[in-house]
Design a protein around this nucleic acid. Sequence first.
DNA 1: CGTTCTTTTGAAACTAGTCAAGGCCGGTGG
DNA 2: CCACCGGCCTTGACTAGTTTCAAAAGAACG
Lengths: 215, 215
Amino acid sequence: MEKVPFEIYSRRRKILTIAAQKTFLKEGDAIAEIYTLYSGWAFQFKQIPDGRRQILSFLIPGDAITLESLCFPDLTLPFSVKSITGLFVCTFGIRDMIELTHRPGDQFMRLSGEMRDSVARMNCRLVDLGRRSALGRVAQLLLELESRLRARHLSQNGTFHFPVRQEDMADALGLTPVYVNRTMDRLRQHNIISFDRQRMKILDIPALTSVAEEE
Amino acid sequence: MEKVPFEIYSRRRKILTIAAQKTFLKEGDAIAEIYTLYSGWAFQFKQIPDGRRQILSFLIPGDAITLESLCFPDLTLPFSVKSITGLFVCTFGIRDMIELTHRPGDQFMRLSGEMRDSVARMNCRLVDLGRRSALGRVAQLLLELESRLRARHLSQNGTFHFPVRQEDMADALGLTPVYVNRTMDRLRQHNIISFDRQRMKILDIPALTSVAEEE
DNA sequence: CGTTCTTTTGAAACTAGTCAAGGCCGGTGG
DNA sequence: CCACCGGCCTTGACTAGTTTCAAAAGAACG
């Protein structure tokens, strides 16, 4: 778990417990507080009236859930958020947070760094969805998650807890669950990854990387 | 053309003239100045080593070209920028701009509003690429552009100058040029749009909207 | 006016989607 | 302890949307 500086820690408001598979923030909700993911997995998504949905980003422990809203004060959330596993979520008052982060200093730099990464990841995802095949998209997603998890010491040489269902991957990658399955199977056949239940293991990172780049 | 407040106007550094079809900013470039599009069309894009490319966003007169870099001070640009038509581009010193926009006030609100819109559009584009058919994507793009142009008085009841090539649309929508052509043709057959050269006309906005939402 | 770039059209090939059924596991209750 | 149930993963056969390749027809440019 990431070290939380005292300055922020002292302003923490409360910790929420959220059950698995709950949409606990809905697009259009007024946001009075900033949410941060303390433990568990979740995702941001948008729903199209007819039922289709697109996952915008997966959230792992240590991620800010409503990061962008912080920087661009808005009254309403531009996406919904759903838990995958059970969660612990911390909330902070939005005023405190803005004051703290909109003046130069460590917090400002840390936050703007995270914003930058988040926007950069969005750009990459646009490239994935627009210009990569199913194989490439799956590979990119696995690599992105592995690298983010590793940065938080939640992946030990390519092995990590992975509670994301194939249906969720499909909604993130713009594919159908069935095809995600076939694609993952293809990677497994080639001994590039292995997985069972919620245990994901990347066996051959270089191979996965070259699949990710070339497909 | 949008009215430029004196406060910003007085700090303008210089105006650049850029020829059509020039990649005048490259991913990885160090950015010492803020670029704003004064006239003409351009787009932000990312290039994959093997030649494929993905357009992230089209830029129309009045748009900030390097908006996100302003808010997340970074040394390098995360995408390239290419002109479609000839351009006039204004540049400002990045220091001036940050000072001006990072303290509360009109400029701050205006800028964070634009940032918010830009991120919101990125989210929508992810939904488009992930979950919509070719027809839906084309419709969404045309509607988005018409609405942005209208906000700047560059569209008169659905008619506007449209210098974007079908190949560019393809790279923005994650399709092939050939299929963009067929798709646009389909919209034309149904008398929803008409276009000739660089003149685009949306004949039936409600119809286009329903195509955009349902496909 | 020839050259080049963009749009348009046709036919064949392929990637990914759809529909449907079976298998595996974890949980629950008898 | 075992049978049943519900989720999720897996597999198969078929379909559809999109790509690819190729070539022709229109505009734009010098």
